[in-house]
Simulated scan of single mutants.
Amino acid sequence: MSRLSQRALAYLNEVVHFRSLRKAAQHLNIDPSAISRQLSALEEELEIRLLERTPQGVIPTEAGNMLVAHFRQQRANEQGVLSRLCDLQGLRQGSVRIAVGEGFITDLISQPLQSFILRYPGIDLEVQMAGANEAVGLLKEDAVDLALVYAPIEDEALTVHVDTRQPLDLIIPPQHRLASHRGPVSMTELRGEALALIHSSTGMGQLAVMVAQLEHMELRPKLRTNSVAVLTNFVKSGIGVAFMPELTVSHELQAGSIRRLPMANPALRDARARILSHQGRELTVASLACLEHLRNSMRFFSDDAPGLARSA
């Protein structure tokens, strides 16, 4: 059997990623027929089918999955070798791809991002906004090196590098009826409240819905959104309440434009913020340098939430 065509494997990887030959071709800026020819030739050479068409799009067969995994592992190994060569050059060049939930953005750009770029001018950064589900998917596809995720679902395919406790709190307008509430708030006390809820593709949204179901309560939000900024402004304007980690709205809390109340449910109070990578994929030297920098400079990852220390 001849050697596997790297071009065909790269095309297969893109088609599997986009679940569409046409979208893969658009992304690669080539004619779809070029991809089709390469994949057909690969299937003929291996005498096995690699892709299947379904109502949800193109999906890989078992053989297709095996080749995609091989290609991604091969690419990761190459990046590891190049990374070690870069290390010999003193981190003068390299790149890091990061998936970041919106709730971390203010913490990331306040100082850590700038100081990393100044410290490592030869390292290029690619920062992609992604909810928890999307970020995990990008990691598993090796489309990013690191993911900053809030309240992720446990997954053996991921390596946890940093883990801090960042409770999912209730944020309310300063004049809200619960402003004088003493002690943690239960889910049942929110019945009838105008609630803004972030999309369930995010860790915050998944966690809030899961806890409500455990407490046999249905959340009926007045507003659904995929934006942390919209949630924050919903509360600041006095319309209603929302769930948010303390550090995501630290500036608003300091300014007094909103207030924070802890929730009673243990799952909400024990929510985690994590930096993850794909299990079994060697991080490049540049990625390790970025990981260590984020661990030491981002408030979300250098320690548990400030409110926990104040309530201890």
Rank of each mutant, 00 (worst) to 15 (best):
I109L: 09
S257P: 01
G256F: 12
Q93E: 15
A69P: 01
P167H: 11
L195F: 03
R269T: 04
L39T: 03
L82R: 12
D155N: 14
A229S: 11
V235R: 13
S227Q: 10
E14G: 03
R177V: 13
H27L: 04
G256A: 04
P152C: 09
G131R: 12
S237D: 15
S201H: 10
I172N: 02
V96Y: 03
F18G: 03
E156L: 14
R281I: 10
A151H: 06
L50P: 14
G280S: 12
G80P: 00
V16P: 13
D142C: 05
M1K: 08
L268G: 08
G203L: 06
Q111N: 05
L4Y: 11
G203D: 04
P173T: 04
T202K: 09
S33N: 12
A194C: 12
R272C: 06
L51T: 07
E292T: 13
I153L: 14
T106E: 07
H161Q: 07
C86S: 14
F301S: 05
A99S: 13
T188P: 01
T54P: 00
L88S: 02
V149Q: 08
R269H: 04
D169T: 02
I198F: 04
N77Q: 15
S5K: 02
E44H: 14
L12Q: 10
M129H: 12
M298E: 02
V149K: 08
C86Q: 15
L146H: 03
D303P: 00
N296H: 07
N265F: 08
F71K: 11
A196K: 13
Q111G: 12
S5H: 01
N29K: 15
R272I: 01
L21Y: 05
H70N: 03
L294S: 05
S227I: 05
I153H: 09
T284C: 05
A273N: 10
E43T: 11
R97C: 01
V160I: 15
E189P: 07
E126Y: 11
N65S: 13
F116Y: 13
I30S: 03
V228K: 07
S302Q: 14
L268I: 03
M129Q: 10
A305I: 05
A132L: 07
L253Q: 02
T164V: 00
L46G: 05
H181F: 13
A25S: 14
E156T: 09
V16N: 11
A34F: 02
A286P: 07
A255C: 01
M187S: 06
D304E: 08
R295S: 15
I239T: 11
F116R: 13
G307V: 04
E156D: 13
V127G: 04
R119E: 13
S20D: 13
V144K: 10
H70K: 09
M129Y: 06
T248R: 04
V230Y: 01
P60L: 07
R310P: 00
M244P: 05
D145I: 07
P245L: 08
I117A: 12
